[in-house]
Design a binder for these strands. Sequence first.
RNA 1: GGCGCUAUCGUCUAGCCCGGUCUAGGACGCAUCCCUCUCACGGAUGAAACACGGGUUCAAAUCCCGUUAGCGCUACCA
Length: 492
Amino acid sequence: MVRTRYAPSPTGFLHIGGLRTALYSYLFARQHKGKHILRIEDTDQKREVEGSTENLIKSLAWGGVEFDEGPHLGGDYGPYIQSQRTEIYKKYAMQLLESYKAYPCFCTPERLQQMREEQQVKKLPPMYDKTCRRISTEEMKEKLAAGVPYVVRQKMPEDLELAEFHDLIRGDLEFKIALLDDHVLMKSDGFPTYHLANVVDDHLMEITHVIRGEEWLPSAPKHVLLYQAFGWKAPEFAHLPLILNKDRSKLSKRQGDVAVEDYMKAGYTPEAVVNFIALLGWHPGEGETQEIFSMDELIERFHIEKIHKGGAVFDREKLDWIQWQWRRRKFEEDPRQEGEKLVALVQEYIPDEWRTDRLYLERALKTVKEKILQKPQEVRGHIEFYFKENVDVNPELLTHQKLKVDMEVAARSLRAAHDALEKFDDYEYEEKIKDCLSGVVSELGVKNGQVFWPVRSALTGEQFSPGVFEVIWVLGKEKTLQRLQEALAKIS
RNA sequence: GGCGCUAUCGUCUAGCCCGGUCUAGGACGCAUCCCUCUCACGGAUGAAACACGGGUUCAAAUCCCGUUAGCGCUACCA
């Protein structure tokens, strides 16, 4: 039975890289019909941020990453919050002490600090000098009895040269044990460090596959050695590549949004975000060209060996493209429901006063459907002209060199269009509006653009906008005629 | 500094394990053209990469070694 886990620290919000780690872990568990566990690693109270566990759970749920066990769900392997398991860690630390796989260290932080500085100066690798590993049993017992504060350090074996293990992504790895530090397992405040808590919990919770970030690779051999010290079977490991900024440094704030919540707020859809990050570091391979995957497809297609070794740059433009593909797909599947959702979403980005005439707004939105599907956040700028009292068009805008519209043509077209539109009454139908303007075109004996361009720019005051017929359809007779008159007044 | 990981278009990547089919494929972005009343959409085309140096081999993006670069770790943080 496969059991995987996502084990974040409650130090803030869910990082986009954290979502991906959780996603891969989830995908792997689901495709093997296994269990996915959430465990909160809060052994460092100093770094804990109030409310982050709830935030983590919320963001994970938003992304569609599900769990079978966890602090919010319970389960047979609880508690799932490490600060509630301190007695367990103490027991195992004691076991290690008794079997001489670990030792108490009485060195003060000050001495350690000084030691490291000296090592730095001598250009030696900063490592614990193992002073307390060598003190006599008597001295140790004395200090213990005297209540001298101590930490528990892992004793790196001296009878072994290499620590070896297999990584599902990187293959066989080996590390020289002599270069491994006697790491702290239990802090003087009685809390375990990551190394101890992680190994003990993964064992007790029967985790079969540890899927985590690449930053853990250097300490993985110590974990393997710890499993051996306990006499436990180590789980399989898979160390994921990092997600990077544009400059290839580790993805961080300052250079863009890193919190999943930022993307939620920016109007991105979970399907798109998940689809995008799944592809940052994984690809089905073998000439596959599909890029849009639903969660179900991911579960089916995902293969842990297909995860890449190198880091991947987070490219927001590609995310935007994937988002647009998703919106379009969903809209095609269910135009009515998706349309309503979009309208609701778009409401957040437009001023209150634009909502007073619901029909008018709906029509305006309809003319910029493609733009909304692409970037709902930018809808305001696209429909702004519909809501202006007067458009105050720049006369230059009425002309167009390539379309052969000079001021004279523009004036004539505007005049003729105005007169035709004044007699016209079928403003409810785009097709009729088109017929009406086409009539003007043939009447004047000019090209389409020579009428359409000046009319559209007079009506919108914009270089770029929806097409003339749609614009007139939204504006209605009164506004259309008024705006045409204004433009005419400006150039005559 | 030490240790480790990584290295295909600007970016995400296919191919690499099982050398020839790779004049290296796809996607984002970019450019040009077409469609067209403008933008967008859609269609077509194009520019754009095997980090470098040695081997091994008839043949290397693919195997081996080295160099370089990038990143990670080097806490009583995770």
